[in-house]
């Protein structure tokens, strides 16, 4: 009996060590990347003899980087709007009445999330040419939207399955036709799920390289621009761009996670 707490304590220390080792493994590359963005030298590597913010001022002064950033954000926002609209629609359809082919519809809906990125990118490219869609913003938005729909469907369906049937019946009972009941009861109930899915889609789209690369025209998205800059040699400027992108996406992700958790709790 007496040595059991000791044993337990030993276990806990062991588990804590493993945990911190894992955290280190994940974060060291990120930290190195951030540090190099502040190095006052063109060569990446230790030691760092003097520090500078020049790379950041350079990035914010670089019209190409700024416009590419805006381009990526525009693609993310537009593709997210499409995915949310289509995904919510499909989720409502699948979660409602049972119909023949429901299983198949669900399978086909989720499929784009399971296809490897490179394969779906090539498929999109071939299909776009076949349909006569020019490479460029439209094609990228289309590919991102299709890729993101499954995530919206899954998140919205999960939320929808917790909506008590009596809520809709009560609305109908009080004089709402099915459309009004959907707009005034179902949709407000889905808001936390839709917001959560939106943030997820925005980040997925902003981060996407393969589809944007295969379907892009002359204007690069941010990940494609970074890739292009890498080919002409590694420079701390890239570290600076990447750090800004990292901070922004992490902040949005953390805020969204807390926000949706709070909303779920309230309802």
């Amino acid at each position: 009996m007496n040595n059991r707490p000791e044993l337990f304590r030993g276990n806990r220390i062991f588990l804590a060590c493993i945990y911190w080792a894992f955290v280190l493994y994940v974060f060291v590359p990120l930290i190195l990347m951030v540090l190099m963005g502040f190095k006052d030298s063109k060569f990446i590597g230790f030691p760092i003899r003097s520090w500078t913010l020049d790379w950041y001022t350079g990035v914010f002064a670089d019209a190409e980087v700024i416009s590419t950033f805006g381009y990526s954000v525009a693609i993310a926002v537009l593709s997210t709007l499409i995915s949310i609209f289509v995904g919510t629609w499909i989720a409502v359809l699948l979660e409602g009445r049972k119909f023949t082919g429901r299983g198949v519809t669900f399978g086909l809906t989720v499929l784009p999330a399971l296809v490897p990125g490179i394969i779906s990118a090539i498929a999109f490219r071939i299909y776009a040419r076949y349909l006569g869609i020019e490479p460029g913003m439209g094609a990228i938005i289309w590919a991102h939207a299709v890729h993101n729909v499954p995530f919206v469907v899954l998140v919205v369906m999960a939320r929808l399955s917790t909506l008590p049937k009596s809520q809709i019946e009560a609305a109908r009972d009080l004089g709402a036709d099915p459309l009004v009941a959907f707009m005034r009861i179902t949709l407000p109930y889905l808001v936390p799920a839709i917001l959560g899915a939106s943030i997820f889609c925005l980040l997925l789209s902003f981060d996407d390289f393969v589809r944007s690369f295969f379907l892009g025209g002359y204007d690069p998205t941010l990940p494609v621009l970074i890739f292009a800059k890498l080919r002409s040699g590694m420079s701390p400027e890239i570290n600076a761009i990447a750090t800004v992108a990292l901070v922004l996406t992490a902040a949005i992700g953390i805020w969204a996670e807390r926000f949706t958790r709070r909303m779920n709790k309230e309802n």
Binding site: S166, E169, A170, D173
Partner: peptide, 20 residues
Amino acid sequence: QPPERRNVNMVFQDYALFPH
């Protein structure tokens, strides 16, 4: 007739109040 067209109202077992 669907529920919305009847002059009948219901108190539900779980009350079904709209939480928002």
